[in-house]
Amino acid sequence: PPAASILRGVTIPPYGGDTQWTNLAAAYDALSEPLKAFLQGLRGEHRFSPPAGASPTPEYLQLIKNNTLVSEHPLVTVHPETGEQVLYISPGFLKTISGLRTRESRVLLELLWEHAVASEFTVRFKWEAGSIAFWDNRSTAHVAPQDIFALEYDRQLYRSTLVGEVPVGADGRASTALQGDPVLAAHGAAY
């Protein structure tokens, strides 16, 4: 998974399109102790796909089609620099919790995501042309705006993502690749 991402605003509508990020270390820390203990040994299956509503280039789509990427990551990771325990979830990538029944997995993931995006853990960024956002993917989750699809204005941003290290869980076990190799570069992908 990526270590960090940089997003640069180019064409920004006069309203809407704000981006949010959530602090997954703070979200994890705010969970009850029994729930934290339960999550410590769980792992989830992540599948990579383009962000919903994105307009990826044909080159980028072909890279993804030719290389389905599936990984199993701990639900609680340890940040490699700060040592913080981090809730490692993302509704766009985390599809199921390994070992749980389908309904158990779905309900727990809904609970965790609802908790993680609570206002006390999030920040909202209002874009202007030339704005740059830089975030740590190892301890935050990017919450893309949903209001942009109803706007009659163009919105164009460009994203660069920095390759990261293999996440390690609070239990000391590293993530594992189940299928595919990382897509390390795609030029000209509009976000």
Rank of each mutant, 00 (worst) to 15 (best):
P14S: 10
T96E: 14
A30H: 05
S139V: 04
A27L: 03
G180L: 00
T22I: 04
K36A: 04
S98Y: 11
Q156M: 11
G188Q: 04
E128Y: 07
Y153T: 05
P1C: 08
I6W: 05
P14Y: 08
E59N: 09
R159V: 07
A150H: 10
N23Q: 06
L31M: 12
A52W: 10
T57Q: 11
V78I: 09
P182G: 05
T161V: 15
R103T: 11
Q20M: 13
T102W: 10
Q179W: 09
A133L: 15
A190K: 14
L31G: 08
N137Q: 00
L7N: 08
S105Y: 02
H79I: 02
A25E: 00
T122E: 02
R103K: 14
S55R: 13
V107R: 10
F38Q: 15
F48D: 07
P1E: 09
L109R: 01
P34R: 02
E114G: 06
L112W: 04
P2G: 05
Y158L: 14
K95A: 12
T122R: 07
T96M: 10
P2E: 11
P50I: 11
L108M: 07
L7R: 03
I148W: 08
H142N: 07
L42V: 01
K95R: 15
A25K: 01
V143Q: 08
F121Y: 13
A27W: 01
R159K: 13
G17L: 01
S90I: 00
Y153S: 10
Q40K: 15
T22R: 04
V123R: 13
V107W: 08
G92L: 14
T77K: 00
G164I: 05
E45R: 14
T11V: 15
I148P: 00
H73Q: 09
G17V: 01
R101G: 15
A185C: 11
G130D: 04
L63V: 05
T82F: 04
E120R: 15
V143F: 09
L69E: 12
P145T: 00
L111D: 11
G53Y: 09
V166S: 10
D181Y: 03
L42G: 01
H187I: 13
V78R: 02
